[in-house]
């Protein structure tokens, strides 16, 4: 028997418009662009990061935001050119690094949510991001 699923909707502000769907890649730790990811694979490389070695390519990246050097946008720009970009970005802390990074990665991106995304979205959940409508739909196995 298939597991019973439920759909939860959270709302937020559009940062970069567009619609995308993918499995969630959730980390409660900020991500370094330059010196923190491998743009060729989309993998996190920062030494003490909880998701070190795992790739966000094609996933809906749910994270607090950006940290580290100003190469952030350039390295996420590279993930777009190399085909390893996340499908969408959902983040909670607005900075110039994450804003510019999301803009040049050109994937749907949102922030300022009405519910804490880390409490709603679990790693691997199916997430549909409609940034134009300010809507995130999370399909997950019922508790």
């Amino acid at each position: 028997m298939a597991a019973e699923t439920e759909t939860v909707v959270i709302r937020g502000r559009c940062v970069v418009g567009g619609v995308a769907e993918g499995r969630a890649f959730v980390t409660t730790q900020t991500i370094s662009g330059w010196g923190g990811i491998d743009a060729a694979t989309g993998a996190i490389t920062e030494m003490r990061h909880e998701r070190r070695g795992e790739s966000f390519a094609g996933r809906v990246l749910v994270f607090p935001g950006a940290k580290g050097s100003s190469g952030w946008s350039h390295y996420f720009h590279m993930t777009r050119r190399l085909g390893t970009a996340p499908a969408a970005m959902l983040f909670t802390i607005m900075t110039t690094k994450i804003a510019l990074g999301a803009v040049v990665t050109r994937v749907p991106a949102m922030t300022d949510f009405d519910r804490d995304p880390f409490k709603v979205i679990r790693d691997g959940d199916l997430v549909r991001v409609d940034a134009d409508a300010g809507r995130v739909e999370v399909t997950r196995v019922r508790f």
């Binding site: 050097s69 100003s70 350039h74 720009h77 110039t96 510019l100 990074g101």
Partner: peptide
């Protein structure tokens, strides 16, 4: 300005005003 170490020096030590910008901005 880009370069996080230069940005923090410009803001704190010199009192100039910049965020951490990127290559495109």
């Amino acid at each position: 300005w880009m370069e996080s170490s230069a940005v923090v020096y410009a803001n704190a030590v010199l009192g100039a005003r910049t965020n951490v910008e990127g290559r495109e901005s």
